[in-house]
Nucleic acid binder design. Sequence first.
DNA 1: TTCGTGATAGAG
DNA 2: TCTATCACGAAG
Length: 187
Amino acid sequence: MLTREFFQTDPVTCARKLVGATLVWGESRSLIAETEAYGAIGDEACHTWSRPSARAFVENHPAGTAYVYFNYGMHWMLNVLVKGRKDGFVLFRALEPLSGLESMHLARGVKDPLQLCSGPGKLARALGVTGADHGRDLCHPDGPHFMAAEKKVNVVSAPRVGISRAQELPWRFCLKGCLHVSKPRPK
DNA sequence: TTCGTGATAGAG
DNA sequence: TCTATCACGAAG
């Protein structure tokens, strides 16, 4: 299991290394197919840039805490707090479901495994992530947690999706060739 | 391509 | 109070 130390490096390192790891959430297990890094300092696309509440969150919580927020009036976004050499967040953008597919079908209303978690809003919906999970510790075996990648994986980096500032940073990380990643799919 | 939907924050 | 903005997704 990934312990708190894993989240005490920096957001880009964490985002890259989380691709290929497994997310255990309730009764479900999923392979992490896509992430993005956000830097608390100097990153105009990060919430900390414009939101005092996000800066306070970084101050008041340890590495490995869930940062969940509601966007566009309808989507929950799941992130994990990173605090170490550099502070920031990792956004989970896509998963490949491994188990617990039935409850995901139910929550999402679609059956195609490729459509279940291929986007940050979709995966939160599929897992049942809500504001109630904001501030939750993701480093405890009794709750949601992560398992390290079992073997070496190929990761491709690309510009982040859906942001209007700091678009040049290649801080999106995808499992190479994985059909479960969100659009636009990198090559 | 468009539009729904709501929290947040800054301006007035 | 009012308004802009937003790390999206489904429908058309």
